[in-house]
């Protein structure tokens, strides 16, 4: 399959455009994954501190980033 060959070539590419585009896509995936999992943790009653510990970030940081979202607020305040 020529597409598979192209992709194999891309994986080993030293072209910064290809490599950096992968970093961007990975960051987008990471952001979405974080939203899904933080919302899930909140729904299950986790505190912001517990979520912060699991993500190895500060409680303030995780609260600032996620508390404003409606779905993350369903379990009440911080």
């Amino acid at each position: 399959m020529s597409q598979a060959t192209d992709l194999a070539a891309a994986a080993g590419s030293t072209d910064p455009r290809v490599g950096l585009r992968a970093v961007l896509a990975l960051r987008r995936l990471l952001e979405r994954l974080e939203v899904v999992q933080v919302d899930n943790a909140r729904r299950q009653g986790w505190s912001w501190q517990e979520i912060a510990d699991a993500l190895e970030v500060s409680r303030q940081g995780v609260h600032k980033k996620h508390a404003g979202r409606a779905s993350a607020r369903t379990q009440g305040g911080a």
Partner: peptide, 19 residues
Amino acid sequence: FGDRDAEALRSIGIDLAAV
């Protein structure tokens, strides 16, 4: 978060469809 992202992720071995 479309085809270009899926393609870019595939280039580093991540299958977005599977995720």
